Structures are given as C-alpha cells and as structure tokens.
Simulated scan of single mutants.
Amino acid sequence: MKLKNLKTALILILILVSGNQLFAQDGEVTIDQDSDITKLLEYKKDVKTVDLYKIQLDFGSRSKAESLKQSFQNTFAEWPAEMVYETPNYKVWVGNFSTRLEADIALLKIKKKFSKAMVFEPKKED
C-alpha cells in the first residue's frame, strides 16, 4: 500500500514538474525609452571623474572670448563650448572627448576655421 502511494506521489510530482515546462511562455521585452535619456548620457560626459580631452580655441580678453565662442557655436553646433577664466585670460574650451583620437578628429575639422585650436587634457578637480 505504501509502495503504491509512493509511486502515485512520484508520478504526480513528475507530472507537475514537466507540466510546468509544457506551459512555459517565451516572452519578448520591448523597452520604450524616452529620447532625453540619450541626451542625458551625453551630458554625463561632462562629469569630471573621467579622463577627458578638450580643445582650446584661443584665449584673451572677455569680449574676444565671447565673440570667439559665439562664432564657434554658429559654425559647429555638435560640440559644446564654454568660456573659462584663468587669470589673466578668458579661454574658450570645446567638447568633452573621451579619447585623444576623438579629440584629434574633431581638431582637424575645427582647425579649418580656428587655426590656433589645440587639444589638451584639463587638470582634474580634486
């Protein structure tokens, strides 16, 4: 009698385990991502914790730097430009390039209009 109950229990367990696999479903995941996430990832490159390369267009007085920055932004909209003050000059810095190669490729395009441009690695802020 115990043997019969044991066999019945084992068969029942086998049916339950294999039945679970018979009714398994294949799923498909679709990620609906906001387009702003891509922009945020680009802005994340601005974080000073990674090694970045920038391009310096030129330096001088505030008015010279402002006009240089405006001229750059009108010509090259794909890279961000910023004006930085380092005593006694204002400098115009461009981009946040993650590799030197990426910066050099951009420099080739930028030098056609801004001949004094150069690639550099800014000091990290501690």
Rank of each mutant, 00 (worst) to 15 (best):
Y85G: 03
G95H: 12
N74E: 15
D58R: 04
S98K: 10
I110L: 01
T87Q: 07
E78Q: 14
Y43M: 14
A77P: 10
G60C: 11
M118V: 14
V47N: 06
D34P: 02
L57D: 05
Y85D: 01
M118Y: 12
D34Y: 04
V17E: 04
R100M: 08
K116I: 00
W79P: 02
L68A: 06
K64P: 02
K44A: 14
E28N: 15
V84E: 09
S71T: 11
L68P: 05
K109P: 01
T49C: 04
T49N: 10
D32W: 10
A103W: 00
G27S: 15
L22M: 11
N96C: 05
D104S: 02
K45E: 12
T49P: 01
Y43H: 12
E42V: 14
F72K: 11
N96H: 09
T49Y: 05
I105T: 10
Q33E: 08
R100E: 13
G95T: 11
Q56N: 12
D58G: 07
I37Q: 03
V47S: 05
L57P: 04
P80E: 15
E28Q: 15
L107S: 08
E66A: 10
A77T: 15
T38W: 05
L40K: 11
W93L: 10
G60L: 11
R100A: 07
I55L: 09
K54A: 13
G19A: 15
K69G: 07
M83F: 04
N74I: 11
F72D: 11
S115P: 09
M83V: 13
T30D: 10
N96F: 13
L22S: 08
V94C: 08
I110F: 00
W93T: 07
F76I: 02
D26T: 15
K116R: 04
D32R: 13
F97Y: 12
L68R: 05
L57R: 06
T87Y: 07
F72V: 13
A81T: 13
F114M: 00
E82H: 07
R62C: 04
S67F: 09
K112Q: 12
R62I: 07
I37V: 14
G19M: 14
E102V: 00
S115F: 04
I105M: 05
A117G: 01
F59G: 03
S18G: 08
V17I: 15
K64W: 07
Y53K: 03
T75I: 06
I31T: 12
N89T: 04
S35L: 05
R62W: 10
Q70E: 13
L101F: 05
V92I: 07
V92S: 06
S98G: 08
F76N: 00
Y43Q: 13
D32A: 15
D58K: 09
F23M: 11
P80L: 14
N89Y: 09
G60N: 10
S61N: 09
V29H: 10
T87R: 10
T99K: 02
K111D: 01
I55S: 07
Q21W: 03
E78C: 01
I15P: 00
